[in-house]
Amino acid sequence: MPTILRAKCIVAGDAGVGKSSICQVFHSDSAQFPKNYTMTTSVELLVKPVNIPDSRDQVEMYMYDSAGKEIFSENVIKFWDHPSVVMIVYDVTDETSFSSCIKWLERVRAMKSQTNIPGVLIANKIDLDQRRLISPKEGKDLAMSNGLEYFECSAKEMQNVDTPFFYMAHEFHKMYQERLQVYSSLA
């Protein structure tokens, strides 16, 4: 029997940056991009198993696709206890969404301040190249100074959406292996 780990992945960022699209594209194996915009007003939960290469293990990603409108945030945060990993998303054509990333990250990290929470910073909508305002360098710098891994993607083009989830699943699996070493050394 393979070991199945479970990771709670908080997906946060301003409204309209594409969090739900990213989650749905990943969840459907790139079969489904939502053509019409529906604002998320609470938290949508999607579950997707990720196989860990070179092992028999699997990480089930419990994606907490969270409303980005500030008016819902008090309600949304109630669903965020015990986060395992975090995904912060911004829209490369929207400067406000980029500057909000820190706020979202701090809110998630405050849920479990003593624990290391691996995370990714996602620059979405890179298909809108002509309208792009946030350069890759700005994104990378922000990610690096906050201990996040930087990824660019286009949910619409279904481009590079899976990679950040694989990265988080892999990091979570790695932490589990490290904990096993600690537990074994305690007796």
Binding site: I4, A7, K8
Partner: peptide, 13 residues
């Protein structure tokens, strides 16, 4: 009956 072995949780509470 021993401390040597253990049960682990595998994520979530």
């Amino acid at each position: 009956g021993t401390d040597e072995t253990f049960w682990t949780t595998t994520g979530l509470y």
